Amino acid sequence: MMQFIDLAAQYQHLKEKIDARIHKVLDHGQYIMGPEVQELEEKLAEYVGVKHAITCANGTDALTLALMALEVGEGDAVFVPTFTFFASAETVAFANATPVFVDSDPDTFNICPIDLEKRIQVVKGEGKLNLKAIMAVDLFGLPANYPELEKIAAKYDMKLIEDAAQGFGGEINGKRAGSFGDIATTSFFPAKPLGCYGDGGAIFTDDDDYAALIKSLRVHGKGVDKYDNVRIGINSRLDTIQAAVLLEKIVEFPSELIKRNWLASKYTGQLSATYEVPIIPEGYASSWAQYSLLASDSEERARIMMKLKECNIPSMIYYQTCMHKQTAFKALNEQYGNYPNADKLASRVYSLPMHPYFKESEFDAVTKVLMTL
């Protein structure tokens, strides 16, 4: 049966190398913060092009650690896209800060710089919250508009966080996702472009002080000695076996990106005359965490997805409920106005199978169904 993301095929391709890496960990027995963790952090920093990569237990913790390092707390406003996964806004609320939702760019689906500045001005005018940070998300693999976001952050003296959970491997003019903003984060959830075989995450920064602080915070706020805790932290360490898996996957990752881009190009070439396909701005490169189309409305989306299902072709919706409509954020609902672009995306977007081990025959099966609708 066709897989939406075929992790089994990836494992079979890398089985011998991954198994050897895992057995090495089993032999030395350093299951937490073993030597593979430091080796992975060095390779991640080199790949992204930053001074520091600090691994942690998952992508949500990565965001939490970034907010802790930036001292985000009660009374602070953090501007986040409303069209994204729940964790982005959840971590802001968990820090006792206030998430302020921002509408989407209708072309890229990422946070809209124009709408962002409008909402910053509204919050500033109200005078109730401190303008603290912007958290941008690299949705579906495409980096957000960091050239504009960096200008806005500087203009209002705010920090900028890059949530590259989906964007790892993406680029803007050769600068890789994970290297934008004051601090960037990513997730190694198995379905991500670079995923492990469990949970995992990482934080990226060029700032030595932030790096040292995050390394302390991820291990209960420890000082020089692990039994001297100098601050309140959390327990968020990447286990050594997951690091071992990622060490082999990151070697293969550049080749997998080529395959992802090949598949995306084939989809676009075949479907662009009939469907609304993804738009990649000039100078940008996506890691294609998802390949998403836009239906004309929710009814057409449901009809297309049902036909794909009847033909045993998986498809998914990301994300059908925006942050401003989530039950958990009911108290903030519509506080700062409407989000027309995001609401349209939530009712229209759907994603096709996308992974580096997709076969030509599977591609033909997907496009055959879509072209007969």
Rank of each mutant, 00 (worst) to 15 (best):
P281D: 13
H13R: 13
L194K: 09
V122Q: 15
K132V: 06
A57R: 09
V25P: 09
L63C: 01
T98K: 15
P81Q: 14
A97G: 12
I120L: 11
M354K: 07
N145H: 13
K51P: 09
A211L: 03
F204G: 12
E256I: 01
E162L: 07
F168W: 12
L373V: 02
I250V: 11
A285V: 15
Y210F: 14
D209W: 02
K151H: 04
Q12F: 04
A264D: 08
I280P: 09
N338Y: 08
N333T: 00
S315W: 00
M305V: 00
E71L: 03
Q166N: 13
V245N: 07
N173Q: 12
C196A: 09
I279Y: 15
V219I: 05
Y291R: 12
C196G: 13
P143C: 13
E299W: 04
N341R: 15
N110E: 13
F86T: 06
S347E: 15
Y318V: 08
Y291L: 02
A202Q: 08
L70C: 05
A20D: 06
A154S: 14
T268Y: 00
N229G: 03
P106G: 14
E117I: 04
G169S: 10
M135I: 07
D115H: 15
Y318G: 05
G49A: 01
E36G: 05
P278H: 10
V219R: 15
I114S: 11
A302R: 07
T84Y: 05
F188G: 08
F204N: 09
D239A: 01
G73H: 11
V122M: 14
F86Y: 13
P193V: 02
Y291A: 03
K175A: 03
Q3K: 15
G174Q: 02
F94W: 09
L247A: 02
A212P: 10
G75S: 11
L246Y: 07
D297R: 14
Q320M: 02
M158I: 01
P356D: 11
N96E: 08
V25Y: 05
S347Y: 00
L352M: 08
Y47T: 05
V224N: 14
A69D: 04
I234K: 12
G181P: 14
L293G: 02
S272P: 00
A346E: 05
Y336N: 09
C112N: 15
D138Q: 10
G59R: 01
V369L: 04
